[in-house]
Write a protein that binds this DNA or RNA. Structure first.
Length: 575
RNA sequence: CGGGGUGUAGCGCAGUCUGGUAGCGCAUCUGGUUUGGGACCAGAGGGUCGGGGGUUCGAAUCCCUCCACCCCGACCA
């Protein structure tokens, strides 16, 4: 490709509304342009990268034995009513009506469509297992789209759905997909990690997320290398801290704490360590009435864990100030475990401390020296809190520095689930087993955020000059920067010859034949992140040398003109 | 959904408080001088000042209203 025939819409200045580096660079490099909140145009440079990712995903999926299909983006409401998600899915589902007033939605995911399709196509266990995928535009009406294509409303996703005779078959395909995803992200040249994950609204049980590791990631991941444990913080198990609960040593006493309502205020006012306080949070129960959740003052509630408790309403609903006043007689900030009169569920660590401080259920008053079993009933114990850096790994058999969790951040680019029979049951997807008996097929589902991968790769690979693509994703492998293309016949003919030879050899070459100053051409090539560059000018040709530079390296090297083709063929990865 | 903020040329911004013919830098186009890391000179084009309504002799500026976009939050006990 020649730049004279290619839309290189680079920007010198950073658009004001782009917050994170990948969004800024995608705009500056002329990869994307915004059409509406969370909706983007892909320009030629961007689309070339997107297609690279798509192709790698497609190749690896095909290798795994999955079959490509294409389902409609617009789906009839009936299918969603059948699965029960028309009501459940909420605001993220973009609902539409056709001219007859019939309800449709723009598909945010395709479990309904595929299950309905396959239930008609697959009749016999002999056709199983089967795995179908597509690469397609999805729409999820995010309440807050942001970060460019990282969290867009319209985006490209690879989604796959597998069907099985039994759980064993599902597990086997799940393992194959785990392997396939590992291959995909390895081929893309990304630093990533597979982590145990919550299954969220899609449903099902076993699940792993694949995260590209980056500080700007929206997810926190707890990792312990020693025990090979990695889990999304949403899910990561928090173990009890500090052995058996100590015996009480203090007596229960009431202290006035006027206007002290937060943990920080109370602990400072009473000159006590934060971890000797507990906070009592009131939420709605499954039945009418409130349930009290007790955490150590320095810990935070993990709402997803709380929602899994059978007595707690899901989704979690916080008690309002009025409800708290009515049930307890005080405002939030002075609630405690003594004579509370509500069901109490305590986090493992909160249940394991003695002589703690909590509210006295009267505004401006707290208790000190509170002990479970003596001053209030023993609580029900449940894992309620978010893990924090330095917690002991749930898989560890002893407490040591090696068994401590570290927390890193990641961008979720892949997610694999074992769905079980949630959808096949609802939509009656059965096949006959070898006894001629109808069996509801267990399902798996496997997603890759194709457009998000593009952004996450930039988060991981950039410098102050721009993007540094891994070879596998680069819009072009090589850029030829001539010095004096329009002035020097010799420069022009050498450039054209190398360009033609390499292009014929299947390498994607960008020849910068604009009549620009070298500084502009260098800046553009660096900004759009082409991994390999050669510079051809009269000066070096006089020495029969051609300058080569890798985008990642600070220095260039001179290559004899006669060896340049061989040199480049060796270094530049063919697409 | 709650809170905050911003809408002026393709991009980045000033002008709004205190009403009086719409500006700057970058980009674009023309001519010239340049040409190894975002050049210089001269000239040119480009704006319903987010939309609608109102006040006024006169509105980018004041008032009302709608819209779009961005940020923060959704942990308060």
């Amino acid at each position: 490709m020649r730049t004279s025939n290619f839309l290189l819409s680079t920007l010198k200045e950073t658009p004001a509304d782009a917050e994170i580096i990948s969004h800024q660079l995608m705009l500056r490099a002329g990869m994307i342009r915004k059409v509406a909140a969370g909706v983007y145009n892909w320009l030629p440079v961007g689309l070339r990268v997107l297609r690279k990712v798509e192709n790698i995903v497609r190749e690896e999926m095909n290798k795994s034995g999955a079959q490509e299909v294409l389902m409609p983006a617009v789906q009839p409401a009936e299918l969603w009513q059948e699965s029960g998600r028309w009501e459940m899915y909420g605001g993220e589902l973009l609902r539409l009506q056709d001219r007859h007033g019939r309800d449709f939605c723009f598909g945010p995911t395709h479990e309904e469509v595929i299950t309905s399709l396959i239930s008609n196509e697959i009749r016999s266990y002999k056709q199983l297992p089967a795995n179908f995928y597509q690469i397609q535009t999805k729409f999820r009406d995010e309440r807050r789209p942001r970060f460019g294509v990282m969290r867009a409303r319209e985006f490209i996703m690879k989604d796959a759905y597998s069907f099985h005779l039994d759980q064993e078959g599902l597990q086997a395909t799940y393992d194959v997909m785990y392997e396939t995803y590992t291959n995909i992200f390895t081929r893309l040249g990304l630093g990533f990690r597979a982590v145990e994950a919550d299954t969220g609204s899609i449903g099902g049980n076993t699940s792993h997320e694949f995260h590209v590791l980056a500080d700007s990631g929206e997810d926190a991941i707890a990792v312990c290398d020693k025990y090979e444990y990695a889990a999304n913080v949403e899910l990561a198990e928090a173990v009890t801290i500090g052995g058996d609960r100590p015996n009480p040593t203090k007596t229960l006493s009431k202290v006035d704490t006027p206007d002290q309502t937060t943990i920080a205020q109370v602990s400072e006012f009473l000159t006590a360590e934060v971890k000797t306080t507990v906070k009592t949070l009131l939420v709605h129960g499954v039945e009418d009435g409130l349930v009290a959740l007790v955490l150590r003052g320095d810990h935070e509630l993990n709402e997803l864990k709380a929602e899994k408790h059978p007595l707690i309403a899901s989704p979690l609903v916080w008690a309002s100030d009025e409800e708290i006043k009515e049930a307890v007689g005080c405002m939030p900030g002075s609630i405690g475990t003594v004579e509370l009169g509500l069901t109490v569920i305590a986090d493992r660590s909160a249940a394991n401390i003695a002589d703690y401080i909590c509210g006295a259920n009267t505004d401006g008053v707290h208790y000190t020296g509170v002990n479970w079993g003596r001053d209030c009933p023993e609580p029900e114990i449940f894992d309620l809190r978010k893990v924090v850096e330095g917690d002991i790994c749930a898989r560890a058999d002893n407490e040591s520095d090696e068994s401590k969790l570290s927390i890193t951040r990641g961008i979720e680019v892949g997610h694999i689930f074992q769905l079980g029979t949630k959808y096949s049951e609802a939509m009656n997807a059965t096949c006959l087993d070898n006894n001629g008996k109808a069996v509801v097929m267990p399902m798996g589902c496997y997603g890759v955020g194709v457009s998000r991968i593009v952004a996450s790769a930039i988060e991981q690979n950039h410098d102050d000059r721009g993007i540094i693509w891994p070879d596998s994703m680069a819009p072009f492998q090589l850029v030829i920067t001539p010095i004096g293309y329009k002035k020097s016949e010799r420069v022009k003919s050498v450039c054209d010859e190398i360009y033609n030879t390499l292009t014929k050899a299947g390498i994607e070459v960008l020849l910068d034949d604009r009549n620009e100053r070298p500084g502009i051409m260098f800046a553009d090539a660096d900004l759009i992140g082409i991994p390999h560059r050669i510079v051809i000018g009269e000066k070096s040709l006089a020495k029969e040398q051609i300058e080569y530079k890798n985008r990642r390296s600070d220095t260039s090297e001179d290559v004899p003109q006669n060896d340049i083709i061989e040199f480049l063929m060796e270094r530049v990865v063919k697409s």
